[in-house]
Design a binder for these strands. Structure first.
Ligand code: FES
Ligand code: FES
Lengths: 131, 131
DNA sequence: TTCAAATACTATACAAAGGTAGTAATTAAA
DNA sequence: TTTAATTACTACCTTTGTATAGTATTTGAA
C-alpha cells in the first residue's frame, strides 16, 4: 500500500486550508466541500490539530486554520501522522516482508518507480499541490 | 493499494510451482516452504485451481501442478483473481476516485511511475521472476 | 480393502480501516 | 445571560482482508 483513504483525506483538507489562511473553516464546511464523512473528518481534524499542522478554534465562528506555511508542509509529514507502519516504500501490502526479514520477490523490481514516488512524497509540499 | 498480501502469496506460490513442473506439490509443503498459513493457503490454492492456473490432484501423493507455461502467466493474471476492484493503477487506496467520478489530487502526479509499475504487472510473467 | 494423505468445502474468528452516534466542553454572537 | 454553533471525546458499528477450525471427499499405496 502506498497511502490509504484517511491520508488522502488529510492531504485534501490541508490543501483546502492552505487556500483560506485567513479565517477558520468549520468541519461542516470542509465535509461538504470535500465530500468527506463529517464524523470521520472531525477525528482526522483533531489529530491534525494535536500534531500542530492546524490550529483549532472552538465555539461559534470556530473552525480550523492551517498552522504553517503550505510550502513547509511535506506530503510525507501528513502521511506519517496517519501511518503506523515504518515507512517502507513497498508495492506489496506487507511491509514486514521488507528489511531484515527479507523482502518479497517484487521488491527489487520497480525499485526506481517506488523510489521516485517516495521521493516525491518527501519533496512535494502542500503549497505546490494547487499549482 | 497496489497489491495485497493474498496476491503476493499467490504470486509466490506460482513461482514455486514453476520450478517443479513435474510432480505435484502438496499444500503442506508449500505452506512450510513459503511460510504461508496452511489453512489460508488451501483456499488460495482452490481458487487458483478453479481459475485453471494450476491443476489439483486429490488423495495420497496429490498436490498442485502449474497448468500453463510460466512464461504465459502474467502477474496481472494472478492479481486479477484476488482483486475485486477494477484495475485502477492508483497511488491512493480509493480507486473509486478514479475515472469519471474524478480523481484525487495526487493522481496526475507520478503518473509515469504508476504507469511503469502497472505495465510491469502486465509484461512480467511468472517465468521471468526467478531470473 | 483399508487407511492415511491429500484437496474441497463451509463456517467462524480476528484485526484493521473506515464510518457513525451521542454527548461534553467551549465560545462568540445575539 | 442565553443560545446556537462549534470542536473534543468516547464508544460502537460495518466492511474488508486475513486467518483458523472442522468436516467431507477423493485417491494412491500398503
Ligand atoms: S515490495 Fe517490498 S516486500 Fe514486497
Ligand atoms: S491516485 Fe488515482 S485517484 Fe488517487
Amino acid at each position: 500500500m502506498i497511502i490509504n483513504k484517511t491520508q488522502i483525506y488529510a492531504i485534501r483538507v490541508l490543501e483546502l486550508l492552505a487556500q483560506h489562511k485567513e479565517t477558520p473553516i468549520s468541519a461542516k464546511t470542509i465535509s461538504q466541500t470535500l465530500d468527506i464523512p463529517y464524523k470521520y473528518l472531525t477525528r482526522v481534524m483533531t489529530k491534525l490539530s494535536l500534531c500542530q499542522l492546524i490550529d483549532s478554534y472552538r465555539g461559534k465562528e470556530g473552525g480550523f486554520v492551517i498552522a504553517k506555511s503550505p510550502l513547509e508542509i511535506q506530503l510525507q509529514d501528513i502521511v506519517d501522522i496517519f501511518s503506523n507502519e515504518s515507512p517502507h516504500q513497498c508495492i506489496c501490502a506487507d511491509g514486514s516482508m521488507c528489511g531484515q526479514n527479507g523482502k518479497c520477490i517484487l521488491h527489487d523490481r520497480w525499485q526506481n518507480s517506488k523510489e521516485s514516488i517516495h521521493q516525491s512524497f518527501l519533496n512535494t509540499t502542500i503549497g505546490e499541490l494547487s499549482t
